[in-house]
Amino acid sequence: MNPVLQVIIMAITGALIGGLTNTIAIKMLFKPYHAKYLFGKRLPLTPGVIPMRREEASTKLGEIVTGHLLTPEVFQEKLKSPETDRLIMHFIDRQIETIEEEKLSPSYFLERLSKGLTEKIIHAFNKEIEDKVTQEAKHLYSRDIEDVLPKDAMTAIEYKVDHLAYDINGKISDYLASEKGYRDIYTMVDEFTENRGKLASSIKYFMTKESLASRVQSELLKLISQEKMIAIEKKVIVDEFEKLKSSSINELITEEDRSQILVSVIKVLQEKIDIRTILNTPIIDFNRDLFEDFKAKGKYKLKDNLVNYSSKNMTKIINKLQLADVIKKQIDSFELSKLESLVMDVANKEFKMIMLLGYLLGGIVGVFQGIFVLFF
């Protein structure tokens, strides 16, 4: 055979072997997608390298991305960049404009978070008022009156009680000495002498009703003005007051009264703290000066607080997001054909270069083999 032709044939053969070997090797990165079996035994090199190591590769890729690419330091640096600063301020400004122009209320934002959240908050708030008032009422009703009233009020009441006997006696004396008191006594004397039998009626033969009424009036005034009578009255009043002080509120009011008081207090508090009106009030109407101050200065402090808080807690935020798991799940969710297409799109030029290099190196090896055969 012609030596030159022999070298050419061996070069072509080497090139084909090298190129086809590299092409098959690249194809075997993905194919076959699934294991192949012959007589119940899995054939070697099936499935392809990437399908076989898919879970391991996705886990490793997630660790690489979160460990070396999307690190807390990277996010912190990005948060503090001028671009992010402008983006956050633009977002805050747009929200302020929307709140002002559309007169948005807290209820609007609550409904954006979750449908029906406003009603849930209103119900929960009113229920909390009801529960707290009921709880405090039970505690209050079980306490003694002496413990409920403030000390200053109790001191004032005790002072009044000490002088109450004198006040009562003064009122009674004024009444007995008055024209009305005399007429009432005269009426009682008249009824006594006319309706209490012969002995009582015989008195009118010895004394006139007028003189008898005047005598009774005089004696009653003397009796009322005696210190002993005042002391008796005072003792009775003080004893009753002491009993009242040591009594619990439960002993003084009925269950029906307690229920009515409870309902009234709850209703008044719920009307005074009208949470529905508060939540439906436009934010700018709560305090216009405060809103303007926030527009001028407060928004910058809000931005700084957001950035500082996010920066300090970035490690926790990333851990909560579990980015490595998210990346792994996303990769695992890809169909193998889709994953192969993505890899091929990214490394298509490199794979072509590998195949061409296989042909080139195979051809060079073939040439050297042909020369070696000719000379040796």
Results as ranks from 00 to 15, higher is better:
Lys60Phe: 02
Asp257Ile: 11
Met355Phe: 00
Ile237Thr: 12
Leu212Val: 07
Asp144Cys: 01
Ile232Ala: 03
Ile266Phe: 00
Ser310Gly: 08
Ile122Arg: 07
Glu219Asn: 03
Thr21Gly: 08
Lys299His: 04
Ser225Met: 07
Lys301Met: 09
Ser201Cys: 01
His139Arg: 06
Lys267Cys: 01
Gly197Lys: 04
Leu199Gln: 14
Tyr186Asp: 04
Gly40Tyr: 10
Leu38Glu: 07
Ala213Met: 10
Leu110Arg: 06
Thr254His: 02
Lys198Cys: 05
Met344Asn: 09
Ser58Pro: 09
Ser202Gln: 03
Val49Pro: 02
Val236Phe: 08
Glu128His: 12
Ile203Pro: 06
Pro150Arg: 05
Thr13Met: 04
Ile261Glu: 09
Met207Phe: 15
Ile121Cys: 00
Lys301Tyr: 09
Lys80Ala: 01
Leu87Pro: 07
Glu179His: 10
Val236Ile: 12
Gly197Cys: 10
Thr134Gly: 14
Pro51Asn: 03
Ser114Tyr: 12
Leu117Val: 12
Glu292His: 10
Glu251Arg: 01
Lys132Asn: 10
Pro72Val: 08
Asp285Phe: 07
Gln217Ile: 09
Lys138Asn: 12
Ser114Ala: 14
Ile283Asp: 15
Phe351Glu: 13
Ile237Ser: 02
Ile50Leu: 14
Val4Phe: 10
Ile261Gly: 05
Asn250His: 04
Phe372Tyr: 11
Glu233Ser: 11
Thr187Arg: 06
Val238Cys: 03
Gln217Lys: 15
Leu221Trp: 00
Lys180Glu: 15
Tyr159Glu: 15
Phe376Glu: 11
Lys303Trp: 05
Pro282Met: 09
Asn280Gly: 05
Ile172Thr: 07
Ser218His: 05
Asn126Arg: 15
Lys235Trp: 04
Ile9Tyr: 02
Ser58Leu: 11
Thr21Ala: 03
Pro32Cys: 09
Ile249Gln: 00
Val367Gly: 03
Ala200Ile: 06
Glu100Leu: 09
Thr208Asn: 01
Ala347Phe: 12
Met353His: 04
Leu290Ile: 12
Pro106Ala: 02
Ser341Pro: 05
Leu199Trp: 07
Leu269Gln: 07
Gly197Tyr: 10
Lys209Trp: 06
Thr23Gln: 11
Val238Lys: 13
Gly14Thr: 07
Leu43Arg: 03
Val373Glu: 13
Gly362Asn: 07
Glu256Gly: 11
Thr277Arg: 14
Val238Ala: 01
Leu117Cys: 01
Glu335Thr: 05
Ser142Thr: 13
Leu61Phe: 15
Ala25His: 03
Val343Phe: 12
His163Cys: 00
Phe368Lys: 03
Leu5Arg: 00
Glu227Ser: 13
Arg288Glu: 12
Thr84Ile: 03
Asp167Arg: 02
Asn280Gln: 12
Glu136Gln: 11
Leu164Asn: 08
Gly40Pro: 08
Glu136Cys: 02
Leu43Lys: 06
Glu128Met: 14
Lys234Leu: 02
Asp293Tyr: 09
Gln330Pro: 02
Val373Gly: 08
Ile9Asp: 00
Phe291Ile: 15
Tyr33Trp: 13
Phe192Ser: 10
Ile64Trp: 00
Ser201Trp: 06
Met229Cys: 04
Ile283Cys: 13
Asn169Gly: 09
Ile64Asp: 01
Pro47Phe: 10
Gly14Val: 06
Val343Ile: 12
Leu269Asp: 07
Asn313Glu: 15
Gly170Gln: 12
Glu227Cys: 00
